[in-house]
């Protein structure tokens, strides 16, 4: 379990160094928020051969719908904990292949399609503690742009400069490992014992 401090754009080689259990802190200006709607829009542009308003290569894509407000004419992130990542399982693999983001951040983990894409592209999935919105906002220093506002505050594409954003725990890496799979198997193995405790026959 190593600790890394990375700056965007993150190279494929740096992303491939990361292993499940490692802790990462991220700084730099290629940090973006994207949930369902933003992923869909980014993929539509890819299909049409059009450019999105930001450069996703080497970036950190954070599954979050932040609370933000405008103070003295400038947007600020107030609270920004992760949202449930499985919703993005539908299109994350395509997004990774198309845009070469290196770190996806969210909560709850993702499925086999994303795991395969992480391996192929050279990227990782990191878990951020769910609900820790105030703590996360500390690392999201500056809002440089608020794109795709028509999607609404939570679904829009927030363009952020981060400083030591973390701790991000690598839970899926580019070597085919997933902590989520490991825990699921352990829980499954406990099922008989749990059923016995409540008097249920398996």
């Amino acid at each position: 379990m190593a600790e890394y401090h990375l700056t965007t754009p993150i190279s494929e080689a740096d992303a491939r160094k990361l292993k499940v259990g490692d802790i990462v802190y991220v700084s730099g200006d290629r940090v973006y928020t994207a949930r369902d709607a933003a992923h869909e829009r980014a993929l539509e542009l890819l299909k049409k051969g059009e450019k999105p308003p930001v450069d996703f290569s080497g970036s950190v894509v954070y599954h979050v719908g932040p609370v933000a407000w405008k103070k003295a004419g400038k947007w600020q992130i107030v609270s920004a904990g992760p949202t449930t990542s499985t919703r993005m399982e539908l299109f994350e693999d395509e997004f990774l292949r198309g845009y070469k983001a290196r770190i996806i951040v969210g909560k709850g983990g993702m499925g086999p399609k994303t795991l395969a894409a992480l391996k192929e592209v050279g990227a990782v999935y990191c878990s951020y503690t769910g609900g820790c919105g105030a703590l996360a906002a500390k690392g999201l220093k500056e809002v440089r742009a608020y794109e795709w506002q028509d999607l609404g505050m939570p679904e829009a594409l927030w363009v952020i400069t981060a400083q030591d954003f973390g701790p991000l725990l690598v839970t899926m890496d580019s070597h085919g490992n997933s902590l989520h799979e490991v825990v699921s198997k352990k829980v499954e193995a406990k099922k008989t014992e749990v059923y016995a405790k409540i008097g249920v026959k398996p």
Partner: peptide, 15 residues
């Protein structure tokens, strides 16, 4: 740690 930060007047969770 998040709770301590939130107690300064910031929503603990963005949701």
């Amino acid at each position: 740690s998040n709770l301590e930060l939130a107690a300064t007047g910031v929503p603990m969770c963005q949701d």
